[in-house]
Design a protein around this nucleic acid. Sequence first.
DNA 1: TGCTCGATAACCT
DNA 2: GGTTATCGAGCAT
Length: 184
Amino acid sequence: MNRHFFEQDTVWVAEQLIGCYLVRQTDEGIIRVQITETEAYKGAEDPASHAYRGMTPRSRLMFGEVGRLYIYFIYGKYFCMNVVAHEPGMVGAVLIRGARPVEGMDLIRANRPNQSDKTLLNGPAKLTQGLNITKDMNGYDLLADPNNCMTWLQKERNLTTVKTKRIGISKGTDLLWRFLAVDP
DNA sequence: TGCTCGATAACCT
DNA sequence: GGTTATCGAGCAT
C-alpha cells in the first residue's frame, strides 16, 4: 500500500480496497479487519458528494493529499470514515462502509456491546464505532502513521466483488459506485 | 441569525 | 417495517 495506489481514479480505488485490511492500534491492543464494503464519492460531477459544491471547511480534505482520512459527523451521533483518493488534480474519497473482524474481536465487542457478529461492523458508523475512530483522526495519514494509530495492510488475494448503486443518498443514485465482497 | 436535512443506526411494534 | 434521536454544515434570509 503506497501513496500511488490512492492517486488513481476514486471508483477504481474503492473497488480495489475490498479485501484489504485495516490495522488499528489502541492502548488496549490491536484490531484487524478486512474491508468488505466501500463507496466512491467524487467532486463537481457527483451530486451526492460533500465536494459537489466546491471546497468547504468540511470537505477540503477531499481536495487534498491522497491517503489521508476524511472523517465527518452525521445525524447528530455518528462518524463516517473516508480515505482521500483521486487522480492528480481531481477530487474524491472512498467511504468505508463495512468490514469483517479478523483480530481483536474482544476489543471490537467492547466498543460495540450487545451486538451480534452480523451487525458488528456492517455499516459506516458501526465500523468507526467498532474501531473507536472519531473526529480527532480527521486528516490522519495512514501512509505515514506517525502515532502508530492505524495503517493499511495489502490484501493477499482479490475477493469476489459486486457493484451496485450507492445507498443512503438522494442524488447521484444512478451511479454504480458501491462495491461489496460476496459472502463466501 | 435561522432553518433544513442528511453518505445513519437503534429501538420499537 | 416504521420511527426517532440528535447536531452541525451549508445555504437562505
